[in-house]
């Protein structure tokens, strides 16, 4: 429950910062507006802050009571699984960075393959087959049938992609 308090704390800090941002919105005379662009966000943040503080007090009291009664708390996060989770998040972050220069096809294939290996999938062969099928299928369905222009990458890769989708 200490974790929950910490999360509430983070939310309170972020929301307070946003409240401060909201006070700095530009003033325009575009319409005869009675409330202003900042009115609604400030009201919402203020209510959220009040509720968060109330919730934090309740949580804190519960925490104290649990301590007094020596109750074991359940962990919010499962530590053995976190390593894999972080790997996943980092992979996705990397993906977002490289997809623009390298294009959809190569990057997604890499993501799918590495992701599956990271999750402990054994067979290289099937992982590769699956990667190819998944990338080809999404290219076909989204690229051809539904006409989405998936990222093509830059330079040489871009020229290349025109032959494929």
């Amino acid at each position: 429950m200490g974790m929950a308090l910490g999360f509430n704390g983070i939310l309170i800090i972020v929301l307070s910062y946003l409240y401060w941002t909201a006070t700095k919105f530009l003033d325009t005379t575009i319409t005869t507006d009675y409330w202003g662009g900042d009115g609604f966000p400030r009201l919402v943040i203020a209510l959220a802050l009040i509720l968060l503080i109330y919730d934090s007090i309740v949580t804190y009291k519960k925490l104290q009571r649990n301590k007094r009664e020596n109750l074991q708390e359940k962990d919010v996060f499962e530590k053995p699984g976190l390593k894999l989770l972080f790997t996943g998040v980092i992979l996705l972050a990397l993906y977002v960075v490289i997809v623009e220069p390298l294009g959809y096809m190569i990057t997604t294939a890499l993501l799918v393959f590495i992701f599956m290996k990271a999750m402990g999938y054994k067979s290289n062969f099937w992982a590769l087959i699956y990667t190819v099928i998944l990338v080809a299928a999404t290219l076909m369905i989204f690229g051809y049938v539904f006409g989405t222009s998936l990222p093509r990458g830059i330079g040489f890769l871009r020229e290349l992609s025109f032959y494929i989708y």
Binding site: A22, I30, P41, V44, L47
Partner: peptide, 28 residues
């Protein structure tokens, strides 16, 4: 319930990101 309401309020707040449709001001 308190946290459900906070979640809803954060949802309301995220809906305000972008150009305000009424005053034309950029928000967040």
């Amino acid at each position: 319930q308190a946290r459900a309401l906070v979640a809803a309020l954060i949802g309301l707040l995220i809906a305000t990101v972008g150009i305000d449709p009424i005053s034309g001001v950029q928000r967040f």
